[in-house]
């Protein structure tokens, strides 16, 4: 199944991961909180409400990631979701699915990258979610774990 995640802005929602988010043991429950409020921007905080465990570090109570729906900055972005994930998230069609890419923030922020290789796939009806782990390589998929932000036409934006 192909999904392209069409929204123009990001909106708030609660997510329940079907499996731990990779890298964070026990990370199952998240809240998507748009930066700047609902419907105004394209970035959101993804806050985990569980105590999570990272290998070699103390338990973390406030895991926060930055996310963006990848179809906004990367027009034409689409991803192949395998049957196992369709079933796991109980997706009945591509219109059920929403995508979020995890952003790796850098300074200046226009130099940030996003993980378009393994986006978070969401059932927007139920809030069930899971991070895609593709069977194919980055080269085969055509998207990188560290995809640069597309150029911003307004130079004022790239200042920090």
């Amino acid at each position: 199944m192909l999904t392209t995640a069409p929204p123009i802005t990001v909106t708030g929602m609660e997510l329940t991961f079907r499996r731990d988010m990779p890298g964070f043991r026990a990370a199952r429950h998240f809240v998507v909180k748009p930066i700047g409020g609902d419907g105004t921007g394209i970035f959101a905080h993804l806050r985990c409400t569980d105590t999570v465990y990272v290998q070699g570090s103390r338990p973390i109570d406030n895991l926060t990631l930055l996310v963006t729906p990848p179809g906004i900055l990367w027009r034409g972005y689409e991803v192949r979701i395998d049957e196992a994930m369709v079933e796991e998230l109980q997706l009945s069609g591509s219109e059920d699915a929403a995508l979020l890419a995890i952003v790796h923030p850098r300074k200046p922020l226009s130099e940030s990258t996003a993980n378009l290789y393994s986006p978070i796939v969401i059932n927007r009806r139920t809030g069930f979610a899971d991070q895609l782990v593709p069977a194919a390589s980055e080269k085969e998929v055509g998207w990188s774990l560290r995809t640069p932000f597309p150029p911003d036409r307004d130079p004022a934006s790239s200042t920090h």
């Binding site: 802005t9 930066i35 105004t40 921007g41 394209i42 970035f43 930055l66 900055l73 226009s110 934006s157």
Partner: peptide, 11 residues
């Protein structure tokens, strides 16, 4: 991030 996101959403 809010202003960058808002501007890119408008674009």
């Amino acid at each position: 991030w809010a202003s960058y996101g808002a501007r890119r959403a408008n674009a």
